[in-house]
Design a protein around this nucleic acid. Structure first.
Lengths: 336, 336
DNA sequence: CTGCGCTTTGTGACCGTTCACATTGCGTGC
DNA sequence: GCACGCAATGTGAACGGTCACAAAGCGCAG
């Protein structure tokens, strides 16, 4: 008869082969100090030889520590959140945590609730929220989450839960730059209304315009895509009652510039454009895009270190905001 | 004395409150048919009331099913792999699986081995490999992985493990397009040498050139970035001994076009350019980029359905290749 | 030689679930 | 009235680790 489906070796198999008790093996695995060097080596040899891997489920069961950090993200492949997520994964893995990521594709209440429920049912130890919709935070308040969590957006959930880039400041930098160049009629192409970043950038635009005593215009509400920027541009340029545009991200700026080219409008000769994010391609747009750089990696890294501190019981909250930076290229120039 | 740290409710708590045995609760959770409707409802009410969530670790321990699919990915925020990953997460979640993603940042042997080891130690049930380096597959061969796995690249690991877009065919489409436009001196800007896609696209370029009886040129080996495309362009254009360029991805094509603009070289008047991927921004480049479209979502979806079939014991392998599509825009035109 | 203390190792119980099997309840046919 | 079969529910063991505590080994002072 054949041996039915080989079972993976467990800690007792290792113990038997090494001639020690299972507890000794456990101590080796957990790097307990009180273990003789020769014993330890013998156990490690056996582990190597039979290819033993500790069963994480069993370990999680008894320690009630899943060593998992949940991530609630948005179903997009955008540069910013993606970069942050990669960095979060890296930082978490280095600290011995793994990630459980759930992407939500729509922003209705049920989808958000389902996504969060799903994460919480995996007994995650902490939670990172990248999904940037306002409504996500309503659900969070309602669920009264007990694990430490951090959002990559500025919210009104209480400052201790936020690790974000100062979007308002970034938008003010962008707007200020255009004002300094002499522009007074400045359009804003915004992101979707329920996105926190979009609202913050709009707010920064309004604040800076107001501070300069300039008239704010109603923003065009976009969807972040280059396509939208393009079609919005075609529409807006029929009137040409502005000389500068601040787009809420680089993709929409790209689309807008595409529309300008089609209509033979020169950038920055006729119209100046500023974007937001500084995606790696922005330097090679035509013309190279003046934009606001955010360090998506830094924010990811700091979010994890904030959570890890909280998991260690360290409550000196080093949360806070990261300052963005204006990158001046060629898409914005003096008012004609 | 205070109640020390409230323990999460378990299946026996539910059983006690519902006045049934823990096994009955287990049956309700697993939707066993032999359970009276009234009993089931009573149990569900208690679950709802006390906010009970099954402990996944305990479940995984006893069933030895982790319901986790591992993903070995590359530490990049590129559009393609990111889009595939999102789709993989979605499809897996719908099927009741979660993902454990590990990104490798360098492609040396140790990093790859460490990444795979890490995934395998989490008792994943299946594995998706997005990391596209040749060397990854050497490690895979060596480890003789026992779980079902699928790669998103075409490899020589045996066809049953691959779900990929036909890169060679795509590259031939791109090259053919340029040849059809009358070009004979066609440069290729390639991706990094150890990337499978890069090699396949190079191969497609060579095959098509050869088939047309044209001389192949040594490719420029790039790093996928727009920056590289730009600097490579500045260098190449000092000689101008070609009339068309096939870049191995859209970003490098973008950078190359940037270099052309700086040197007042007209596209497609003087030089034609074709890219690869069709990232959403490509339609808004200057000029809009002719490129090869790959459906990254479809490949993600099909990879998961292939794995799920294998997990069900269904070995009719529906693996295979997905055909890419040439998207003609304005960056390539007839030879001057 | 005994006893003490420190280092090193071993034993039993437990984490929260599912599995295999046992038991109960109850309608039905003889 | 009782055995029978099926539906519904209950019981003990097991999964593979860690924890708390017990015990053994050993050097050394008295």
């Amino acid at each position: 008869m054949e041996p039915d489906r080989v079972r993976a070796p467990n800690i007792r198999d290792v113990a038997r082969l090494a001639g020690v008790s299972y507890q000794t093996v456990s101590r080796v695995l957990n790097e307990s100090p009180s273990i003789k060097e020769t014993t330890k080596q013998r156990v490690l040899d056996v582990i190597e030889e039979i290819g033993y891997r500790p069963n994480q489920a069993a370990r999680a069961l008894v320690t009630s520590r899943s060593r998992t950090i949940g991530v609630l993200a948005q179903q997009t492949a955008d540069y910013g959140p993606t970069t942050s997520t990669k960095e979060i994964e890296r930082a978490a893995r280095e600290a011995g945590y793994r990630l459980s990521i759930t992407n939500i594709s729509s922003n209705d209440y049920v989808a958000i609730k389902t996504g969060l429920d799903y994460l919480l049912s995996q007994s995650i130890e902490a939670l990172v929220i990248i999904a940037p919709q306002v409504r996500v935070f309503e659900v969070i308040k309602e669920l009264s989450i007990t694990v430490p969590f951090v959002t990559l957006q500025t919210t009104d959930l209480g400052g201790t839960h936020s690790m974000s880039i100062d979007q308002v400041a970034g938008a003010r930098l962008a707007t200020r730059h255009l004002i300094d160049l002499g522009h007074t009629e400045i359009m804003h192409i915004s992101g979707p209304q329920d996105w926190i970043e979009a609202e913050a950038r709009l707010q920064g635009y309004v604040e800076e315009m107001t501070a300069a005593g300039l008239a704010t215009r109603a923003p065009i509400i976009g969807d972040w895509s280059a396509h939208f920027g393009y079609y919005a541009g075609l529409e807006l340029l029929r009137y040409r009652d502005f000389t500068a545009v601040f787009a809420s991200n680089d993709q929409m700026a790209l689309g807008f510039m595409h529309a300008c080219r089609e209509l033979d409008i020169s950038i920055p000769g006729d119209i100046s454009v500023v974007g937001f994010d500084d995606i790696p391609e922005a330097a090679h747009f035509f013309p190279p895009l003046t934009t606001v750089r955010q360090s998506f990696t830094e924010i990811g890294r700091r979010a994890i270190s904030l959570l890890l501190a909280e998991l260690r019981g360290d409550t000196r909250l080093e949360h806070g905001q990261i300052e963005p930076e204006l990158i001046v290229r060629e898409s914005a120039g003096p008012r004609a």
